[in-house]
């Protein structure tokens, strides 16, 4: 079991979350070129090591979290709310 320390809810089992993949992907503007969209939708770094990824606390506070996790050791080294204004307000 991975334990994810949600800034709202505290440490929770990863089964309360839905994994949403690479957090470094930035979706381009709607009228951006097809190439930019292709890259955002389909291409991934897929590192063997440190990975920045989104977890949705679907069975908790429903926040999206950005989790720094190593894909080889599964060690989690950082967690923050994905929504910047909420993260600021919580400080």
């Amino acid at each position: 079991m991975l334990r994810i320390d949600c800034p709202f809810c505290g440490p929770r089992d990863h089964t309360e979350f839905s994994y949403e993949g690479d957090a470094t992907v930035e979706y381009p503007a709607l009228d951006a070129s097809e190439d930019e969209w292709f890259e955002a939708v389909f291409l991934r770094d897929n590192p063997r090591g440190p990975h920045s990824e989104l977890w949705h606390h679907i069975q908790g506070c429903r926040s999206f979290l950005v989790v720094q996790r190593d894909t080889l050791t599964h060690q989690i080294t950082g967690i923050r709310l994905a929504h910047q204004p909420t993260a600021e307000a919580l400080k």
Binding site: G21, E39, F42, L43, R44, D45, N46, R48, T71
Partner: peptide
């Protein structure tokens, strides 16, 4: 499962794969 690791080394860049 190690395709992305080698693809980066080969210069293929990102691929439509997650491991």
């Amino acid at each position: 499962g190690h395709t992305s690791v080698l693809a980066h080394k080969a210069g293929l860049g990102k691929l439509p794969i997650e491991t």
